[in-house]
């Protein structure tokens, strides 16, 4: 009798152990966080000033020959982020949208990556989680990846809006940040990242949701991010139909990309075999774009995506 009781107790403890929230093998949802910090004085801005904006999927600080999620590579080291900081200083952007930014992730050494980059670049920052981390088949890896927005201006408000609910590891959100350029002008930056493994229907829904969010904004809107798709795809064309322009397609663009360029500008690991899948979109009514370029070759090894840099002007 006592022996049966012991076995029963043993199994009860196993069940308790496996259902404990931190060790649970069952699906759990973590609350998405969104933070911002204005630690630095904003730069002056006048309506004639060019806004240099940049979008970069940094793959949590892993190099382009590494994989952040296979559980075998070691990355996210301070020296790697220092190289990124040096590269970004050369570009000198006013606004940077980063995707796949690690936050308290077990498998990277720098844990609050947005804050680390912002402090090194002396920029204000916002950060928002969108999905949790899994490395290889290790369900015990803790941490999140998300959007970061770094800016030389003051951040007034941030909002983290879920745009694709596809389990905790593939969930996507939009980081909507309101930036104060000066007393008269504000700007909304939408940082986004489409899930590469989402179904067509889910991607279309995500596009429509993003368009709706962008249209609701009273300020000029710039949509920066990793769309995981090409400019002529069903993901991006609805934006153009709703009053948003892709900087890639602007005729005045001095670094005009064409089909011949595509073979060399993307990254090899995407399904698109080297085409451009990171884009800068903006509201046609309120903004003009006159340049879109990639970061120089020194940035190409720092992530499996290349940084994309646009120059925009507010319409008077």
């Amino acid at each position: 009798m006592e022996f049966t009781k012991d076995i029963f107790l043993h199994f009860l403890i196993i069940i308790f152990f496996s259902s404990c929230s931190d060790l649970s093998i069952f699906e759990k949802e973590k609350e998405l966080i969104s933070i911002y910090e204005n630690s630095f004085a904003p730069r002056d801005f006048s309506i004639d000033d060019t806004l240099v904006v940049m979008s970069w999927n940094i793959q949590m600080g892993f190099r382009n020959d590494q994989n952040a999620f296979n559980g075998n590579d070691v990355g996210g080291t301070p020296s790697h982020f220092d190289q990124m900081v040096n590269a970004i200083k050369e570009i000198n952007p006013d606004i940077i949208a980063l995707q796949e930014v690690g936050h308290n992730a077990d498998h990277t050494f720098v844990e609050n990556q947005a804050q680390y980059l912002a402090n090194a670049l002396k920029m204000n920052f916002a950060y928002a989680d969108y999905s949790e981390i899994i490395t290889g088949y290790n369900i015990l890896t803790r941490g999140a990846r998300g959007h970061a927005l770094l800016t030389k201006f003051t951040i007034n408000e941030t909002e983290n809006i879920v745009s694709l609910q596809q389990g905790r590891y593939l969930r996507r959100s939009v980081l909507n940040t309101t930036i104060k350029l000066n007393d008269q002008n504000n700007l909304n930056i939408l940082g986004l990242h489409f899930a590469s493994r989402a179904e067509r229907e889910e991607k279309i829904n995500q596009s429509n949701h993003l368009i709706q969010i962008a249209l609701e904004q009273r300020n000029p809107v710039i949509l920066l991010g990793d769309y995981n798709d090409v400019h002529w795809s069903y993901v991006l064309t609805p934006f153009e139909e709703n009053g948003f322009s892709n900087a890639l397609l602007e005729e005045s663009n001095p670094c005009q990309f064409n089909v011949e360029h595509y073979g060399s500008i993307g990254h090899e690991e995407t399904a698109w075999m080297g085409v451009l899948i990171d884009h800068i979109l903006f509201s046609k009514k309120t903004l003009n774009s006159y340049s879109l370029c990639l970061g120089d070759e020194s940035t190409w090894t720092l992530s499996n995506h290349k940084p994309i840099i646009g120059k925009l002007l507010l319409k008077k």
Partner: peptide, 9 residues
């Protein structure tokens, strides 16, 4: 003696 779950060290 062993290996970290998440960092390959």
């Amino acid at each position: 003696y062993g290996r970290h779950h998440s960092l390959n060290i």
